[in-house]
Structure formats: structure tokens, C-alpha cells
Design a protein around this nucleic acid. Structure first.
Lengths: 256, 256
DNA sequence: CCTTGACCTTGACCCTACGTCAGGGTCGCA
DNA sequence: TGCGACCCTGACGTAGGGTCAAGGTCAAGG
């Protein structure tokens, strides 16, 4: 007769695993000797080897129980089922590999490459890191909600940077993030921005922020701006005095 | 400000997962409103999306915590590490697939194909299923301990079956399993068996059960025989009276 | 006879990444 | 004011065991 550790070593499993299989009902509890030790016969070794064979093949223990007593057809059906699961798990991990391969550090975490390129261009233009961080966060949010539109958005943004006047204005906006909340220059910026908006109206921004972008998302993006730039609140106040509101999605305040 | 379910839906995770990340320290606990509800800002959405991005890439949460604050080099090192783990898991599952592909029902569970072929031959020879079951269990044990020698053992066994005299004797042995414990014919079988053993001596069985097979294993295999055939004990007793012992590995009892 | 080391017992907590109650408080709307 | 949808904490469950803890047992050697 065998002790539990002898049994375990024949099947190359741990003693703990054997007890686990007892608890799970995979392996019947054997007789005990007078001191309460489990005593096994050779048949238990055979059973245990079968259990390990299935478990080593990736069969979950809950199914091992069925399979040990299953007939031929059930068995082959179950095997097919398990093979499907394994294939799915392999595919999942292959996708994981592809994803982590994309994950360099920094911006590219949670952003598609075209967005990373855009952020890098902002960086090359010498814009302050604080503003770029705000942009990055905003685009992370957009990329999470509307991944299929990121390519389009990024193309639009890149085109804006190609226009010298817009770029110049962008630089001035960037300056703004360091201003105190009561800086008087905000009024001038507000004027210029409204000038831009009214010159561009009405069709130029077409498709830029259409139906896809829900009001909720727009509000969330606005709050990113409001939270990351101290003077943002003042600026938006200026805009509202001039008949405009919003930031992510400017719109004329309807006259009442 | 966002509620927990709004936050969760922006990052496409469950509310439970968000709380889990709080508990794990991945996402800082936000301010509470006066009724104790968590209130989030847009930055929390960004953080949560980053967490999901890493987790979706197969990064364990314990490492996500490090990676969120890691610099460029640590990050790429960690990514390489995770990729290694993923590759290992994929390989593991591919091995599992190969193994379960081998697992038809019945005998082949835990046995190599040549052993299955041997058992099938016994079946074709019309030997009783009870005896074949005993053989199968014995070979499962051997295959688990000495997988590299199975091919050789099976070749030997097949050769034995090719010899008409041995085969005939095999059939008679097979009959035996139905006998009562006090059947007088056991003596005759004992005589014939000893005849075989002494005729075959000493070199014919060479390499069949050599050093590889430990005494422990031999004893285990003997016990399979003793447990599965009622009259086995009587037969071995007969053998001992004639100067032989064992079953798996017959040996002459040294004269004292 | 005693010690020592190896083995055995049960019970309980640990891991991942959350899911799923249970029991109770809160919000917004009709 | 009542209802459904939301929020809170706390606790238990998952798969497959690992790892103590606290104690009983066994065999060998001094």
C-alpha cells in the first residue's frame, strides 16, 4: 500500500494536488490506516495519472470529472470543445502580443499612431508640455469612444497646423496657459478667437465634430480643457459675452 | 463630474472593476459628494483607459501599477518581459492542443499509441476485457515512469504474441481469471509457467526489465495483478513452492 | 527511552481579476 | 410619496492549487 506522497510521486504531482482532487471529487478518498493516514492501491495511481493527463492537456478539473466517466462520443465532443477554448486563448494572447508590441512608453499608451504623430508635431513646434499633456488626455478619451474616427480627426488637426495663421494663433493660445486668472490679455485672445470662428463659418468644420461625438463626450473634453488650463474658465466667459460657447465644439449661442 | 457608472462606461469596464482598481491602488480614490458617492473628473477617465489598455494587453494588474509610473526604459524592459510570458503561455497552450488531439477516448488516455495497438491486439485475440483492463492499468503506470522505454516493451510483448506456444499459454492464463480461489487447476498452470521460465533462461529476457524498472515500480505492477485477478495470489504461491517469485519480473528464489 | 527528521492530518488563508449577492442608503422623476 | 435606478460596504465564490500552522505518527539511531 502507498502513502499519499508515494502516490503523488508516481503521478508526478504534489501531495497538495492529490488532496485537492479528493476535495473536488475527482479521486475517491481511499481507506485510512489506524492512524488516519490515507492508504492507496495501484489503481489510484492509474486514476491519478489519467487525471493529470487530462489536466496537463488543459482540461479544467470540473470537466475532468465528467470525462473520466464519459463514453466515446461525449469524450470526443468534449475534446473538440476544449480545443476550441485553447484556440481562443491562443488567439487572445496573440492579440495581446500585438498590442503590447505597440506600447512604447509615453504618449502611445492608449493612443493610435496618428495621434502620437500629431502630439510629436506639437512638441516639435515648441508648444509647452502642459498643453500637450492636455491634448493627449483629450485624444485618449476620443480614441476610446470613437476609435474609427481618429484618423479623420488627426488629418484635420494636421491641416490646421499647416495654415500659418492658425498656427500662429495656436502659439498664442499656448502662451495663455501660464497666465494668471485675471490677465487682461484674455480679452484680446477672445476677440481673435471669435474672429476665427466667424470667418470660418459655416461649412469649413464640416464633419469634424458631427453626430458621432455625443454631448456627454463633448462636455467631458471641455472639462479636460477647463481642468488643465487655469485661465480656461475666463476665456470661455469672454467667448460667451461675444455670443459663443463651448470649446471642443464651438457653437453660437441662440439669440433668445 | 462623473458618477462611477459613467466613468466605467467611458472606459468600457464594469463598475466592479473600477472599485477593484481602487482597492488595488491602481486608480486613486476620488472625492466623495455629501452622500458618500465617488465623483470623478475627466482625468480619472484617462487614467482608467490607460489601465484598461495595459490590462487588455495581458499585463497583470500588479505590473500595471508599476508601468503607469515607469520611465521609458523600465517600460520597454517590462514590455519585453510580458511578451516573453505571453509567448510561453501560447506555447503551453499549443502543447495542450497537441496533447488533447491525441486523446481519443478509452485506452489511449495516458498511453502511447504502440501500447494502444498492443491492447487492441489482445482484444482481437479474444482475451477477456477484465484482463485487458489490468494490462492497460499496468502499462499506464509504466508509461508514466518510463515513457522512453515503452516502444521497446511493446515490441517485446508483440514478439511474445507471435510465438504460438506463448500465445496458447497466454490464453490459458486468461481463462484463469474466472476461477475460484481454490480451483485445483492452478497447480498445472504453475507447472507450465515454471517450465516456460526455466526453458527461457537465462538470457532471452535480456533488456526487458533491467535497471530502469525500480523495485518500487515492480512491486506496484505486481499489486495491480494481484488486485485485478482473484486467483493471482494462489498462483504466485504455487510459483514460490517451485522456487520462483514475482510476476512483473520473475526471479529465482535464491537457495539459502 | 528519547530525540530527530520525515511524513501525515485538518483547517485556514493566499494568489488573479473581478462577478455576484446582501442589506441598506440616495437620487431623480411622476 | 413612491418607484426604479443608482450608490455604498462587506463578504463569498471562482481554478488550481501554494503555503503556513499546529499537531499526530513513524522509523532509525544514540
Amino acid at each position: 500500500m502507498l502513502t499519499i506522497s508515494q502516490l503523488a510521486s508516481y503521478a508526478d504531482v504534489t501531495v497538495r494536488a492529490v488532496r485537492h482532487y479528493h476535495a473536488k471529487g475527482l479521486l475517491p478518498e481511499p481507506e485510512r490506516d489506524r492512524s488516519g493516514y490515507r492508504r492507496y492501491d495501484a489503481h489510484a495511481v492509474v486514476q491519478l495519472i489519467k487525471i493529470r493527463t487530462l489536466a496537463d492537456a488543459g482540461v479544467p478539473l470540473s470537466r475532468v470529472r465528467e470525462l473520466l466517466t464519459a463514453g466515446e462520443e461525449e469524450f470526443t465532443a468534449a475534446v473538440a470543445d476544449i480545443d476550441r477554448r485553447l484556440r481562443a486563448e491562443i488567439r487572445e494572447r496573440q492579440r495581446h502580443r500585438e498590442r503590447i508590441a505597440q506600447l512604447a512608453a509615453g504618449d502611445s499608451l492608449a493612443l493610435p499612431p496618428e495621434a502620437v504623430a500629431y502630439l510629436n508635431r506639437l512638441r516639435e513646434l515648441g508648444l509647452p508640455e502642459l498643453l500637450i499633456g492636455g491634448e493627449r488626455d483629450a485624444w485618449i478619451l476620443v480614441a476610446a469612444q470613437l476609435p474609427q474616427h481618429m484618423a479623420f480627426y488627426m488629418k484635420m488637426k494636421q491641416q490646421q497646423l499647416d495654415d500659418p495663421a492658425t498656427l500662429e494663433f495656436y502659439r498664442d493660445l499656448a502662451e495663455m496657459i501660464h497666465w494668471e486668472a485675471d490677465d487682461p490679455r484674455v480679452a484680446a485672445i477672445g476677440d481673435r478667437l471669435v474672429g476665427f470662428l466667424e470667418a470660418a463659418e459655416p461649412e469649413e468644420w464640416d464633419g469634424y465634430h458631427e453626430d458621432q461625438m455625443t454631448d456627454d463626450l463633448v462636455q467631458l473634453l471641455d472639462s479636460v480643457f477647463l481642468d488643465s488650463v487655469p485661465i480656461a474658465r475666463r476665456l470661455m466667459q469672454q467667448l460667451e459675452e461675444r455670443g459663443w460657447r463651448g470649446w471642443t465644439k464651438f457653437e453660437r449661442i441662440p439669440e433668445k
